[in-house]
């Protein structure tokens, strides 16, 4: 079996649209079903996140399995902050047991970004090493060399932040992850179009087979932009962008237009094969964005 994500990226010219599945704390499978109803028709796959922003939630693997039961293809995120190499391998093997193939391996925010900053940070592996480990499992062995028969199927991705210093090194770092075995890259949200463009051009030129999926985030107004600028590690939003939304006649509409513009720009860049959407608005703007980008809903 090939995952739909790998089918689209490797064997078609279509674009891949992915969405961040909201973090789940409680409410059982009904809560999952409610989110699936809203986002399911518009996306090819959904990311199951791993304690985003260093806040504990229902586990990445459990949520990925739940999404899959409801018919959305999961992309399992695994971060290096909370688990050592044994736990990361068992996450991957547990997911494989349930037929989950798409995985994205990332370093992750530090514990200090979350609500339990007193926790021990792990980082037994880093992002590129975690990509290697997923790849090693896919070749039929654990890191120790112990055989796995049959080998699990993984379609492996990584993330990169095209806008964070040292900006001139980010392309090289993406290449390193590609060398480690990443086939696609989901990017951190980026409010510097010039940096995004340079990054995509560089990667497209040096690693034409590495598929780039930039991210956008739907927010309500300038307050959320300010929050991200202050609180989310690695995200810098120019003051002029924030002011532009704040001083407009309709900040809600203007915040939406910003995302539409970012999406169109991202999709026009070399190497870019799709878009990843994070929705903090939870109103009708997700559907509107998809329609205005030319998507038609699946049944």
């Amino acid at each position: 079996m090939m995952s739909r994500v790998s089918e689209i990226l490797e064997n078609s010219k279509e674009r891949l649209f992915t969405v961040e599945f909201p973090e789940i704390d409680s409410g059982g499978m009904e809560r999952i079903a409610k989110h699936v109803d809203r986002i399911g028709p518009w996306f090819d796959a959904a990311n199951s996140t791993d304690n985003t922003a260093a806040h504990a939630h229902a586990s990445n693997t459990a949520v990925a399995i739940a999404i899959k039961i409801y018919g959305i293809e999961p992309i399992l995120q695994i971060v290096c902050r909370d688990k050592n190499r044994l736990a990361i391998q068992s996450d991957l093997m547990g997911a494989a047991l349930h037929g989950i193939e798409n995985v994205v391996m990332l370093t992750g925010d530090d514990v200090s970004a979350g609500d339990e900053p007193e926790a021990r940070r792990v980082f037994d592996l880093d992002g590129p090493q975690a990509v290697v480990v997923a790849n090693v499992l896919a070749t039929g062995q654990y890191l120790s060399g112990r055989k796995i028969n049959p080998a699990p199927n993984f379609y492996i991705g990584a993330v990169e932040n095209p806008a964070a210093p040292p900006v001139d090194y980010r392309i090289q770092r993406a290449l390193k992850k590609h060398r480690a075995g990443a086939r696609f890259l989901q990017l951190q949200i980026c409010y510097h179009p010039d940096r995004l463009e340079n990054f995509c051009r560089g990667v497209a030129e040096l690693a034409p087979k590495l598929h780039i999926i930039p991210s956008v985030v739907l927010v309500k107004n300038e307050k959320s932009l300010n929050f991200m600028n202050d609180k989310v590690p690695g995200i810098d939003i120019p003051q002029s962008t924030i002011e532009g939304v704040k001083n407009s006649a309709d900040p809600g509409e203007s915040a939406y237009q910003l995302v539409l513009q970012q999406s169109k720009h991202a999709l026009s860049l070399p190497g870019v094969r799709g878009l990843h959407v994070i929705d903090f608005r939870r109103d009708n703007s997700l559907e509107r964005l998809m329609r205005e980008l030319g998507r038609t809903p699946k049944l």
């Binding site: 940070r121 980082f123 964070a164 040292p166 090289q172 951190q188």
Partner: peptide, 29 residues
């Protein structure tokens, strides 16, 4: 602080300082 051996994490601040220790330059920068 994350003992990363393969380059900077995605959290480096705009001024080149560390996500975890804002007063320290990111060691990978």
């Amino acid at each position: 602080p994350k003992t990363l051996r393969n380059g900077p994490c995605g959290g480096v601040r705009e001024n080149g300082n560390c996500e975890v220790k804002p007063e320290m330059q990111c060691i990978w920068v």
